[in-house]
Structures are given as structure tokens and as C-alpha cells.
Simulated assay, not measured.
Amino acid sequence: MPHTIKKKLYLLLEDQSNIEPRARWVRAFLVVLILLSVTTVIIETMEDISIAYRHIFRGFEYFFVAIFTVEYIARLWVCNHGCDKHSGILGYVKHALNPFMLVDLLAILPFYLPYFLPNDLIFLRAIRLMRLLRVLKLGRYSDAVQVFSSVVKLKKEQLAVAGFGLGILLIIASSLMYYFEREAQPAIFSSIPHAMWWAIITLTTVGYGDAYPITAMGRFLASFLALLGIAMFALPAGIMSAGFVEYGERKRNRKRKKCPNCGATIPPDDKT
């Protein structure tokens, strides 16, 4: 009996092969619930409405947390169904560390933390805003998000190199700008971390205007950095574009079939 229940729950929550037709309704229900939960959190920040309807908001929160808690426990319970690699306690731990499962945990954690921590801690109010992370649960039901995640994994080495290069550029630019501007503007460029704020704003081409160089060398460095920043941020975009092309090609190759007679590869659009 438990095995039968576990199988049904697995098909409803985790199976992506559409064997269980009711799984679509479960996913739709959870998506609607996530959107409603995030909407209530946003509306609750309006103090006049929050005070007037405090009990209603609290009731909604109890309902949302109850559903999401049951969902989290159910997903953790069925993770080893038909799969030997998730057997035992270690398997449950590995599944709990899955990014989607961590997001699910963060979605319900702010509700339970005040029961285990002193109520006079001010940061608990900020933790409650973590309920907005429930919107990230939508990634579980979005094919586009899963494709994006696959592309990032495919190109993680190249993206890491690009990020490392960007970090080195940021440190060098901040150090040079601190050296050039510290005497002319000691309040704005008082340290390398202060200069790093300017470098980030310049590299991203945002340019708030709250900090800018006034010396000749500082302006020269800023001009060079502004031009270089466009290229540096275009590099990850190019890597991701190549990743999407490569991912699409691999997916098409997996769909190709071989002729049972001669063993030749049959193109995906060949219906003969």
C-alpha cells in the first residue's frame, strides 16, 4: 500500500512523461498558489490594508505554508522511487540539496523560524520578506528556466573564466582609480572598496553620477573602462548564445533515429 501511494505521488509531482493526466492539474494548482502567495505578501506590505485585514492575511499564510510544506515533504519522500542512487539517508540528503528543493525549503522557512528563534530579533522581519522567493518555485514548472539552467551547466567553465576576468578587471580598475583620485576627492574615493562601487557602475554602463573622476588620468581610465565594460559584459552573452545553439544541436541529435535495416541515421523530419 505505501509503495502504491508513493508511486502515485511520484507521478503527480515529479514525473515529466505525462503518464499521469492529473499531474497537469496539480502543477497548475501549485502555480496558481505560488502566484497568490506572492501577491498577498506584496499587498501585505501596504500598512493600512495589512492592519485592516490582518487575520485574513494570516489565514492565507497558514494555508499556503501548509500546502507548500506537504508538497516539500512529499517530494522528499518520493525522490528515491524507481531510482537506486537516491536510496538511503544519503539519497534523501542529496535530493534535499537539489536547487529546486532548496528553493522550496526557503519558501516555507520564514514561517517556521520565529518559532525557534527569539521574537525580539529585528532581522526576523526581513526574513519574512523571503516569502517572495516562492516565485522562484515557478522555475520548477517552466521549460524555459530548465533549458536556461542546462545551458549554464553546459557552459559553466567558460562563464567562470569570463567572471574571473571581470573580477580581475574590477579590482585593477578600482585600485588605479583610488590612486588617481584619492587626493582630489578624498571623500568619494577614500578607499579601494569605495572606488569599487564606481567601477561597478561604470563597467555596467549604468552611470548614476554620484561618483566620477575629475583628474586627467582618472578620466582617461574611466573612458577606457567604459569602452571595455561593454565588451566584457558582451562576452557572457556570446557564451550563452553559443550554449543555446549547442544545447539545441545536442537535443536534435538525441532525437535522431537509426534505420533498423541499414543502421543509417534518420533525420528528425524524415517520416519515411
Rank of each mutant, 00 (worst) to 15 (best):
I192S: 01
F148H: 03
N98E: 05
L176V: 02
R252Y: 03
V135D: 04
N119D: 06
P99M: 00
H55K: 09
M130P: 09
S149W: 11
T40V: 00
I108S: 02
K251Y: 11
M240G: 00
H3G: 06
L176M: 10
A211R: 01
I43T: 13
D210N: 11
E183Q: 04
L225M: 12
I5N: 10
P193G: 10
M46Q: 06
L113W: 08
N119K: 00
K6M: 15
M101I: 02
Q146S: 06
L169S: 15
G209L: 12
F224H: 09
P186W: 01
N119V: 02
L129T: 01
L228K: 10
R131E: 08
S50F: 09
K255S: 14
D104W: 10
V32F: 01
A231Q: 14
N98H: 09
I214K: 05
R131L: 05
A264Q: 06
P99E: 00
R27K: 04
L228I: 08
Y53H: 14
A107F: 00
A126K: 12
A216E: 15
D270N: 11
L121E: 13
P21M: 00
A66C: 10
T205K: 08
I56A: 02
V103L: 13
F189P: 12
R256G: 01
D269H: 12
K255E: 09
F116C: 02
M232S: 15
P193W: 09
R254A: 02
V32L: 05
G165T: 06
L12H: 02
L12A: 08
A216G: 11
A195R: 03
Y72N: 07
P99A: 01
A216I: 00
G163D: 10
G59A: 10
I73F: 13
V147P: 14
A173W: 07
V245D: 12
K257R: 03
S17Y: 05
S241A: 15
Y112W: 05
K155Q: 13
